[in-house]
Simulated assay, not measured.
Amino acid sequence: MSETDEKSLFLQETKGIKPLKQDTYVPSQKLNKFKLKQKAELKDNREKQDTLFYFSDQYEPLLNEESAVKYLRENEDSYLLKQLRRGDFSPEIFLDLHGLTREQAKLELASLIQVCENDNIFCASIMTGYGTFTLKKQIPRWLVQHPKVRALHQAPREWGGDAAILVLVDV
């Protein structure tokens, strides 16, 4: 079919159609900086709340607390734990929880996992310190509940030793 045949077929098919009249202009809406900042804060808060949903204080996982802190998600390669223990993974982000309350630490953990997910960070180090051992015992209990946590292990000496935990996050 030639171009003139196509044009005549088009004109024949569209005969008698009235063109639409577009006489209204809708200006684009510009959000001011304050509203944009509010929207970003709401999104961040929502993401933190979603992540916090996983951290229950009543859940008691089966962790051997006499030996080094370690956890491996079901269906993961057990070699991951060995690599964490040896320090084969270097943390890309560090979280220091010294001096924080349990609730503050829970919020910081939620933020850490969210940042790891958003920025494609695979390995993180969480420094719990020694202190009263409250956070050192509670942090692994919270982390094993989160579906993005693949594995965790007490950090090797160069990444904090007994006072830190290395975490592998599913990104």
Rank of each mutant, 00 (worst) to 15 (best):
A155T: 00
R102T: 10
R157W: 10
T134G: 09
E76D: 12
L11Q: 05
K137Y: 10
L63S: 01
S56F: 05
A164E: 00
N120Q: 14
G161K: 03
G161E: 04
D5Q: 13
Y59E: 11
L143N: 06
F53C: 08
G160R: 04
S8E: 14
V69H: 05
D77Q: 08
K33A: 14
W159S: 06
F55L: 04
D119M: 09
R150N: 14
K82C: 10
H153D: 02
A105R: 02
R157A: 12
L84K: 03
G131I: 02
V149M: 03
L36T: 13
A164K: 04
G16Q: 14
A110R: 00
E13D: 14
T51H: 11
Y79D: 10
D88R: 05
L36K: 14
E103Q: 07
G87E: 00
L52R: 00
Q38E: 15
L97M: 04
E47D: 13
A110Q: 00
H98P: 08
W159V: 03
K35T: 13
K15D: 12
A124I: 05
L107G: 11
E3H: 13
P140Q: 00
F34L: 13
K136P: 01
K48I: 02
G99M: 01
E6D: 11
T24P: 03
D5K: 10
F89I: 05
L52I: 05
P147M: 01
P91F: 07
V115C: 11
R157Y: 11
E3R: 13
C116H: 02
L42H: 14
L152E: 00
D88C: 06
Q145D: 02
V149I: 06
E66C: 10
G129P: 01
E103I: 09
V169W: 03
E65K: 12
K39A: 11
E74N: 12
T101K: 06
E3D: 15
A68V: 09
V149R: 01
Q154H: 05
W142L: 06
V144C: 01
S28D: 15
K18L: 09
A155F: 03
H153S: 01
D5I: 12
N75C: 05
